[in-house]
Design a protein around this nucleic acid. Structure first.
Lengths: 145, 145
DNA sequence: CATACTATGTATAAAGT
DNA sequence: TACTTTATACATAGTAT
């Protein structure tokens, strides 16, 4: 959309990347907003400009943390399915967290608890990895994951 | 973009929302991919369809967890600035987490460390809230946040 | 229900100021 | 450097299949 068709590869000029980012950022933010309103859905968009400046967008229904949490609550298998639109299966998907400037102490308590649970899950996962690693040493044909 | 211009409000027909979601989902995914390639940036897009099916997109540089982590590491003030593109200042922004099926133990260690830091930040924040609350009791004209 | 078509509105690359 | 304009490519609403 413009005077010429661009090749889909990194723009060589740094200033060009910045200008193009600025234009397309507003475009994609508009699309995200329209999609969230028209179809009444949850959506989160996170971007960093070429110079590192962050942009965040979320629909009206849920805050960012809540949408990420919604994702996190999906089972890994569900998240990794092709139908999720992620072309190269997402081996690693995040759950969530929340820093904040919230004044809601209860929310902070919930966050903290969730974080502790995440750490706990990571430790269990690490334990399993060690166990599987040990088993694969004993039997090299074992399929790990 | 179509035979008529739509009003920017929730489509009334449920089937219409689904069809429109399906069309626009592919559109916004394409935009996200183009933006990430052309401008060589980190981007994450999370959506839920009207029927609750999740879609996730991230650029080639970083996985989802890493981009969310990058956001999380920003100071709250930076994230809440208007320039981030978030129209209604994000009172509560997430940091992150990572469950995972990763086999990368080092990554797990990093995640764990980040989570611990997040908890620490939350505790500091809670402490500040208590302090500010106390001060506002002493002087009712104090502006808290 | 999905997929294809096409008229029309939108986004944007380059040029202009 | 940044904002405005314009020509062109692209996305998509309604329709047909």
């Amino acid at each position: 959309m413009g005077r010429v068709k661009l090749m889909m590869k990194r723009l060589e000029s740094s200033s060009n990347r910045k200008v193009t980012y600025s234009k397309r950022r507003s475009g994609i933010l508009k699309k995200a907003k329209e999609l969230s309103i028209l179809c009444d859905i949850d959506i989160v968009l996170l971007m960093f400009s070429p110079s590192g400046r962050p942009t965040i967008f979320h629909g009206d229904h849920r805050c960012i943390g809540d949408v990420i949490a919604k994702f996190a609550q999906l089972t890994p298998s569900r998240k990794d399915k092709k139908e999720t639109g992620e072309p190269r299966g997402t081996k690693l998907l995040s759950c969530w967290t929340n820093i904040s400037r919230t004044e809601n102490v209860e929310h902070l308590r919930n966050l903290e608890e969730s974080l502790r649970k995440s750490i706990e899950r990571i430790q269990i996962h690490k334990k399993h990895l060690r166990k599987n690693h040990f088993m694969s040493l004993k039997c090299t044909t074992t399929q790990v994951m």
